[in-house]
Structures are given as C-alpha cells and as structure tokens.
Design a protein around this nucleic acid. Structure first.
Lengths: 204, 204
DNA sequence: GTCTATAGCCAGATAGAC
DNA sequence: GTCTATCTGGCTATAGAC
C-alpha cells in the first residue's frame, strides 16, 4: 500500500493523537464516564472536528480497542517467534505484557455491559478479526501447555483463555498500585504468581 | 430495640423492596447505567416517592452495598462458628458464597471509579464499619492459613485479601454462564480452583 | 407519602460560516 | 476540516397539589 500524500499523513497523525487520548481516558475512567468534550479538549481541537474523524463516541472507543488489539497481536507474534520457549512461558509473557499495560494506565477497559458499545464492536469487522486471531494463537498454546502437563488438564481451555483475558480488567493490580507499597515489577510478579500458581502453597 | 408501629414496619418492607430492586439493577448494569426512573418503575411507585426514602441515587446504591455487606458478614460469622474447619476452608467457603451471589445476578458491582459514589461511600459510617469488620476476620484467616502452610507465605496478606474480594467482579463466571455450556456449580468449582490452585498443574 | 408535572443540567451530536 | 453556537434528549432532582 502506498504511503499517501503529505496531507493524508498529517491526518493519520492527528487521528493517532485522538486515539491515544481516548485510550488513556478509557483506561482511566471507562467508557461511560469519558466525555467527548474532554477528549476534544485533551487533543486540543473542537468537538465538532472530532466528529469529522469519528462518527460517534462508540466509534472512538472502537478505534482504541482495535489499536490495543493490534498491539496485543504484535506481542503474540513476538512470542510465536521465540522458538526456544514453551507454550506456558509464552502465555506468561503475553500476560505480563497485559499487566504492564494495565499498570501503566494504557489498557482501555471494556465496560462489562454497555449495549451501544457492544453492538458497535460486534459489527466491527477488524475488531472481531483481531480478537479471533489472538484467541486462536493463545488457544493453541493453552492446548499445547495442557499436553505438556504444564497447565491443569482438567480445566476447559476456554476457561483458561478467559482467565488470562480477565487480567486486563482485574482491579487487584491498580489497588496495589494505589497502596503505593510495591513497585510495578513486584505487582506484576505477584499477580502472575496468583494467576498461574494460585493462592495455595505448592506442596514441597 | 422495639419493633416499631405497624406503619413503620410497612415502611421498612417498602424500603426493602426498593433496595432489592436497586441491588438487581446494580448487578445487571452497574451504577452509571442504572436510572432512578427504572428503579421507580420496577418497584411500582413514582420517582418522587423514591426520593422521600433516599436522598439521592448515590444513597440508593449505598443502601444496596450496605445490605450485601451485612449478608457477607453473616456468612463470615457462620464460618467462624464452624470450629472444625481450617482457615483455608473458611476462606474458600466465603469465596464460594461470593461466586454464587455473582452468578445469581445478586452481587452489586461497585466498579469503575465513580467519584460521587466513592465520596458517598467513604462518608458512610455503617458501610465502612462493615467493610472493616469483614476485612479483619478474613485477614486473620489469611494469616492463619499462611501459618498453617496452606496459603503461600511469600504473598502479602493484603494481596490475598484483594484477590478474594475481586471474585465479586470477575467477568469470568458471567462469561462462562453466558456460554451456557456449564452448570452454575461447575463454574463455581472451576473458578475456585483457578483462584486457589492457579492454572498450572500441581506437581504429582 | 403519594402522585403529576417540570425545572435544571449535562453530554452527544449537528448546523453553518469560514 | 476547523471553528462557534446550538439543538436534542435523557437523567437527576424538586415543586406543589392531594
């Protein structure tokens, strides 16, 4: 695909700035509490101009979700290229990235049940494609890790997948961060441990 | 404390009905998407009448949160009375109750950082008392379970506490429920297993 | 305490000039 | 495409009769 004219590149840069702003607000306050006014103010353009780029508030949020999914697929691709790593280790590294994004305030949160946003996303082709791409690769690793005996074989693979996805909206990391007692890396290690090894002691 | 007049008892019954309705809406759609209009319609009284009982939408939500905390403290009290049970088993049973409430659509979600609701709750004496009461009992069991070697000693007790609290807003049970493939009891067992034992296989 | 009716506000979306 | 100004609808909360 060609680069497009200078004018088009400028447009792309602006839209990137908008999506970045939306991404941050979604991570900070969620879809319902985010207002289009504050996004416009943050980007430094008029609200009406925003609507020339994106048709609705839902379209703004969708764009942010697509971008984070694109990055997630990149991270998954990087792990797929690590030929020496096992399936469990790859899953752990992807989960680590999710937690780091979350702690950095850059993981947009999908409000569990907003009908309008849900409808928009379910009709968004690229979003669904990316979500399926990520799920298929992660699902394959989960099955492989179970075959390796690294993940509990009695757990349904979809449960494992959802449990990993849920790390993106787990309140625990942010509560620990708010407490101010631990560094980000410590929090990430703690949550990874509770996720993969659970709360109970390993038998020695 | 005396029972109060017949009139007062009728009032209490009505307020109970209001709180039950609020509780269900909070569990279904959350604070932001819940409207006072639909609560009034659900209870079958006029909106203005609602405001005779509760001063604001935040007061409605607070009342629901207090009631669920009261029930949680009752469950904790029941476990405290089981003299034969160990600390880990008590924690597991309380967590099981949380998951059952959640799956039944009766666990009000107090998610998202809504400033007005947060402010109301932080100024609500009974809410804070109940939350502290629950946290102290659970915290004592966590420390005991670590001393018993039943919970990983290298995890900070507060991390364990938050991880258990987080089961009240974990999306995984509801996603599995929506999938329709598992019975509620199976979902509860799966999530309890991932929570306490993690995803990884136990060494055999 | 219950109702009908409405005030007041805020946020999403649009009109129209430039 | 950008702006200012405005429309529109929905929501919280209240006034006032009964």
């Amino acid at each position: 695909m060609a680069r497009g004219s200078f004018r088009e590149q400028m447009l792309k840069v602006r839209e990137d700035a908008i999506v970045s702003s939306v991404n941050r607000f979604l991570a900070e306050k969620g879809f319902d509490l985010m207002t289009v006014d504050e996004v416009a103010a943050d980007v430094g353009i008029a609200k009406a101009s925003l609507y020339k780029h994106f048709a609705s508030k839902e379209a703004l949020a969708s764009a942010a979700m697509v971008r984070v999914l694109e990055r997630a697929c990149e991270v998954i691709g990087l792990q797929a290229a690590r030929l020496e790593a096992g399936a469990l280790e790859r899953l752990r590294e992807v989960t680590r990235w999710v937690l780091q994004m979350h702690l950095a305030g850059q993981m947009p949160t999908l409000p569990s049940q907003n009908s309008t946003l849900r409808a928009e996303l379910l009709g968004h082709k690229r979003y669904l494609e990316l979500l399926m791409q990520a799920s298929e690769q992660l699902g394959a690793w989960i099955v492989q890790a179970q075959a390796d005996g690294a993940i509990d074989r009695s757990l349904p693979p979809e449960l494992v997948l959802y449990t990993l996805y849920a790390r993106a909206c787990d309140p625990v990391p942010l509560v620990l961060k708010a407490g101010g007692q631990y560094r980000h890396e410590e929090i990430v290690e703690f949550v990874l441990r509770t996720c993969f090894s659970g709360l109970a002691s390993r038998p020695s």
